[in-house]
Every structure is written in C-alpha cells, then in structure tokens.
Amino acid sequence: MDEMEHSLLKAVRPEPGADVRERVLAAAMPLIEPHSSRLDLMWFSPKWRMAAMLAILVLACVDAVSEHIVAGQPAAQNRAAADTVRAVEMAAREAGLTPDDTEALVAQAIAATRPPRITSLNEDTLFQRSNR
C-alpha cells in the first residue's frame, strides 16, 4: 500500500447522519412479514439445494450405470443362444439327421434359449412346461 492509498484511507470515511437510521428503519420495518414456510426454507436453503443437486447427480449416475448393465445383458444372452443353436445344428448334422429334422431341432433349441416372458402364464401352460 503506497502513500496515495494511505491518504485515501485516512480521508474517505463518511457515514450517514444519525437521523437516517430512524428514517430507514421506520420505513422498512413495517414491510417485514414472516415468510418462513417450510417449503420456502427448504427451497432457498443452500444446504437443501446442495443435497438436491447431489441426489440428482447420484440418480443420474445410477441411471447411466443401470442402462449400461441392462444394455449388456441381451447381447450376452444373444451370444449364448447363438452358440447353443450352432452347437445343436452341428450335432444334428453329425448325427445324420435330415435337414427338416435338423431345422425342427434348431427351432426347439431357439425356443428353449429365449428369455422367459414377463406376461403371466396360466396354470395349463405351467403344467405343460413342467411335463416337457
């Protein structure tokens, strides 16, 4: 801090008049109303805002990770099914089955490797499946 800044610091210290305090507070105080609803306190609180942002960030991360996992599952399932079908087809040819029989066997293998449907099954279907 140089001489000029020292001079300014010494010089510039004005303050408002004593009557200004009464005037300002008299004008402003009647305008004060309590605005402390719980929702306001939460919405405008920096802590709550930070917590909300963190929660959104965590949810977004979880969403992104779960999408990645879900997207990876069908691909793995498809690969496994394709390997099974290829193995069944090869085994059928080596066993000397006719092309029609081979095709039927492969169709059954494909049906067997499909993931289970979400739709509910009735009792008859369950019974039939259990007897296969």
Binding site: R23, A27, A28, H35, F44
Partner: peptide, 15 residues
C-alpha cells in the same frame, strides 16, 4: 433507504 426497503420486502429468497 432503497436497499433496506428492498431487503425488507424480498422475503424467502434472502435465504
């Protein structure tokens, strides 16, 4: 005075 009038009427956003 304008500053304190504004502060008195702003309400919850002051938080």
């Amino acid at each position: 005075q304008a500053v304190f009038l504004k502060v008195a009427t702003t309400g919850a956003p002051l938080l």
